[in-house]
């Protein structure tokens, strides 16, 4: 029987350097990157507070950012409500990183179509910034980003920076809103507007559960192959190590085999999408 060297549930404390309100529901939590903390875009960590428990949170900064780690967290459950009361100088406890992120090396030389719905932009931001740090390794970059209303747009200033750095950024909102001049409709309405070279493109999709089915249908119409479509799936998680059972999708454990999968890998799993 295998012995664990250290206690697998023991988290490490990190002191928040900055907490920045982004929207009504989302804030950015920034802490110094601990020594030896290596990760890939799309991986997650367990974030906890003593007495309040833990929750899985995607890392929002890229691995190329050596000094700081950023987490964009939506206030949605009991733990995240308390997290939103924290300020610079407060301590949070982290474990991880866990899971499998986006394989950037397999995207070299290809066009990348990023598709984000709501806070799906959070893990994609890590990937987008990582790709931009090595811009010459990739082909055309396009971001389709859908939110409910303009008030929910995350990282608005960065979207402009990315646009300037060569990302074709296209936004849409679900319903018309006073003063909004851009596209109106769900994110799939943007897909027919972009030029996709299906032989040399990968798509990276992160959004709410309801979004995947329609995005995949639209991409299928554009002849994008299953092995070129990457998705990050959200599930409940308690351990992060393939044991507690909560994140299981049919036979696979999201925390270990995922959260990033190719469509090919999960197509046969009826519970996945």
């Amino acid at each position: 029987m295998q012995r664990a060297d250290a206690h697998p549930y023991m988290p490490q404390p990190v002191r928040l350097e900055r907490v920045e309100r982004l929207t009504e529901k989302e804030s950015l939590f920034v802490f110094p990157r601990p020594q030896g903390f290596g990760f890939t875009p799309g991986q997650f960590i367990m974030v906890g507070l003593a007495g309040y428990g833990e929750a899985p949170i995607s890392i929002s900064s890229p691995p190329s950012e050596k000094d700081m780690v950023e987490l964009c967290i939506r206030r949605v459950g009991s733990l995240t409500t308390i997290l939103h009361k924290l300020r610079a100088g407060d301590t949070i406890w982290i474990r991880g990183p866990f899971g499998r992120g986006f394989p950037t090396e397999r995207m070299h030389g290809k066009d990348i179509l990023f598709i984000a719905g709501g806070i799906g932009l959070v893990p994609l931001r890590s990937l987008i910034k990582e790709v931009l740090a090595e811009r010459e390794d990739y082909g055309r970059l396009t971001l389709l980003y859908g939110v409910k209303s303009p008030k929910e747009i995350l990282f608005e200033e960065e979207l402009e920076l990315w646009q300037k750095a060569g990302v074709d950024v296209r936004l849409t909102i679900d319903r018309a809103y006073p003063g909004w001049k851009g596209n109106v409709g769900v994110v799939t309405t943007l897909i027919p507007q972009v030029d996709i070279d299906e032989d040399n493109s990968v798509c990276c999709i992160v959004g709410p559960p309801v979004m995947y089915k329609y995005v995949i249908l639209s991409l299928g119409n554009r002849s994008v192959r299953g092995e070129d479509i990457y998705l990050s799936l959200e599930r409940k998680m308690k351990c992060g190590m393939g044991k507690c059972g909560h994140c299981q999708i049919n036979s696979i454990y999201t925390c270990e085999e995922g959260p990033v999968f190719t469509l090919q890998e999960i197509r046969h799993l009826p519970e996945a999408i």
């Binding site: 959200e234 409940k236 308690k238 909560h246």
Partner: peptide
């Protein structure tokens, strides 16, 4: 921090914060 038995037949087993139940 402790662990307690859970069961996959219980209603909240696969329910995430925000309310979606897989």
């Amino acid at each position: 921090r402790y662990r307690v038995w859970d069961g996959c037949t219980l209603e909240d087993f696969a329910k995430v914060a925000g309310g979606h139940n897989f």
